[in-house]
Amino acid sequence: MSARNTLTAARHVVVEGPIGVGKTSLALRLGAHIDAQLLLEQPELNPFLSRFYQDQQRFALQTQLFFLFQRVDKLRELSVPDSFTRPVVADYLLEKDPLFALLTLSEDEYGLYRKVYEQLSPPATAPDLIIYLQAKPETLIARVRKRGVDMERRIGDAYLTLLAESYMHFFHNYEAAPVMVVNSENINFVDHDDDFQLLVKRIEAMRGHREYFNRGE
């Protein structure tokens, strides 16, 4: 991979990973580090989300469609000329949206969702760099429980496990943009500056289309 795809040269960086892995926290730190504008999800604005965690079958479609509209609206800002004069760091990739839908929607609901998704999705523009954060399901479960967000208390362990596995399969087959796969088990890029700087250096040194970072390597 050429130097233009390193962190400082990238114009559109995406931090991705399952619930509890730290993607928004890393996006915030990276955004500050490279003086980027942020494109962040706002799950607290989804009026169906807390009800979804109580009754997934009943509220899955409403929750999914609200997030789809929210994500598409934010991404459309990127296509407006001169709307972003600085680099952009986002904490989501639109192409992974169907991943959640497959886990929660019935066959008929998913068919309806796909029609809406295909109509709404802007022309695909791959980011310059994706940082995919991984963690074991049991680590995700522990982190979600620890942070104590009220509506997240109802997230089932089985759902988090399936979500982590789905992310792994998705990015295993993803080829549209360079991907740095980060094992977040033994690195604390939120509270420890040394860990954050170590991660930044590894990203800056990235030259292949897919590379892996596991602390200690």
Rank of each mutant, 00 (worst) to 15 (best):
residue 160 L to S: 02
residue 205 A to R: 10
residue 182 V to H: 00
residue 205 A to N: 12
residue 162 L to F: 11
residue 203 I to N: 02
residue 172 H to S: 14
residue 209 H to D: 15
residue 184 S to E: 04
residue 172 H to N: 12
residue 162 L to G: 14
residue 159 Y to M: 08
residue 158 A to N: 15
residue 208 G to A: 14
residue 199 L to S: 09
residue 197 Q to H: 08
residue 173 N to C: 13
residue 190 V to F: 10
residue 169 H to Y: 07
residue 204 E to V: 01
residue 174 Y to K: 09
residue 185 E to P: 07
residue 191 D to K: 06
residue 171 F to E: 08
residue 156 G to W: 07
residue 171 F to T: 07
residue 192 H to Y: 05
residue 179 V to M: 01
residue 204 E to N: 08
residue 196 F to N: 13
residue 201 K to R: 15
residue 193 D to N: 09
residue 192 H to M: 12
residue 181 V to K: 02
residue 195 D to S: 06
residue 180 M to K: 02
residue 176 A to M: 09
residue 171 F to I: 03
residue 183 N to F: 05
residue 198 L to D: 11
residue 182 V to E: 04
residue 207 R to W: 03
residue 178 P to S: 11
residue 204 E to C: 02
residue 204 E to K: 01
residue 198 L to Y: 12
residue 177 A to K: 03
residue 177 A to S: 12
residue 202 R to P: 07
residue 197 Q to I: 14
residue 176 A to W: 07
residue 161 T to V: 10
residue 206 M to S: 11
residue 190 V to R: 13
residue 174 Y to P: 02
residue 163 L to Q: 11
residue 207 R to F: 08
residue 181 V to T: 00
residue 206 M to Q: 08
residue 175 E to M: 12
residue 172 H to R: 13
residue 174 Y to W: 04
residue 188 N to A: 13
residue 175 E to A: 11
residue 159 Y to C: 02
residue 172 H to T: 13
residue 191 D to L: 10
residue 186 N to W: 04
residue 201 K to A: 15
residue 160 L to C: 03
residue 183 N to C: 07
residue 184 S to K: 10
residue 206 M to L: 06
residue 172 H to A: 14
residue 166 S to E: 07
residue 188 N to K: 11
residue 192 H to D: 12
residue 190 V to L: 08
residue 161 T to Y: 05
residue 185 E to C: 07
residue 198 L to I: 12
residue 176 A to T: 14
residue 158 A to M: 12
residue 160 L to Q: 05
residue 162 L to I: 03
residue 196 F to H: 08
residue 209 H to E: 13
residue 195 D to H: 06
residue 191 D to C: 05
residue 163 L to T: 01
residue 203 I to A: 02
residue 207 R to V: 12
residue 192 H to W: 13
residue 182 V to P: 02
residue 165 E to S: 03
residue 207 R to A: 10
residue 201 K to S: 13
residue 203 I to S: 05
residue 171 F to G: 03
residue 205 A to P: 03
residue 163 L to V: 05
residue 180 M to D: 02
residue 187 I to K: 01
residue 208 G to T: 13
residue 164 A to S: 07
residue 170 F to S: 03
residue 190 V to I: 11
residue 198 L to W: 06
residue 207 R to D: 09
residue 197 Q to R: 11
residue 157 D to K: 15
residue 195 D to P: 02
residue 192 H to S: 10
residue 205 A to H: 14
residue 193 D to G: 08
residue 187 I to L: 02
residue 167 Y to Q: 07
residue 186 N to Y: 04
residue 209 H to M: 12
residue 196 F to G: 04
residue 201 K to E: 15
residue 159 Y to T: 00
residue 176 A to Q: 15
residue 160 L to G: 03
residue 197 Q to E: 12
residue 172 H to V: 07
residue 187 I to E: 02
residue 201 K to Q: 14
residue 168 M to T: 15
residue 189 F to P: 09
